[in-house]
């Protein structure tokens, strides 16, 4: 298994501890608050992933073979999930990010927020994270 999904499984197990939706969401909201926030100056149109319901900003950096993400959202639940996704991928290598399948998201009980019909920007965000990894791979690693 790639490093992203391994980390993801551990994150999912945190969510599996909650029996009550309210505890799970309170935890998610806390996670949203601890998100490595994107700099205000980077909240540009090109970093904006616009959903119908909420907006997501995402930026990525490549350092020594690893990718680091920052993000934000105007909705706190969306922000919590942004935080979950970033935690799973932050500091991973490009190949791990590209290969990640993210099946562990099924175990979090948050899957409904990741349905394309929710239109909260999260589905597009996952795609964007992988696109960043592919772009970095082409730019820095395909020598």
């Amino acid at each position: 298994m790639n490093a992203v999904d391994e980390k993801g499984l551990a994150i999912a197990s945190e969510f599996e501890m909650f029996d009550e939706w309210m505890d799970k969401y309170n935890y998610l909201i806390e996670l949203g608050k601890s998100l490595p926030l994107i700099d205000e100056k980077d909240k540009t149109t090109s970093n904006l992933i616009s959903g119908c319901q909420s907006r997501v900003w995402l930026s990525a950096n490549y350092e020594n073979g690893k990718v680091y993400f920052k993000g934000d959202s105007d909705a706190i639940i969306t922000k919590g999930i942004v935080s979950v996704l970033i935690r799973s991928m932050d500091g991973a290598g490009v190949d791990d990010i590209i290969a990640s399948e993210l099946d562990w998201l099924d175990n979090t009980g948050l899957k409904e927020h990741l349905s394309p019909t929710r239109s909260n920007g999260l589905v597009a965000m996952i795609k964007q994270m992988k696109l960043y990894a592919m772009a970095f791979k082409v730019k820095y690693e395909n020598k």
Partner: peptide, 19 residues
Amino acid sequence: HPYDVGSILDHQGIAVRTG
């Protein structure tokens, strides 16, 4: 945010529209 309010209402079986 309306999305958050709508999601939390949904978890209580209440259907509203947000956005």
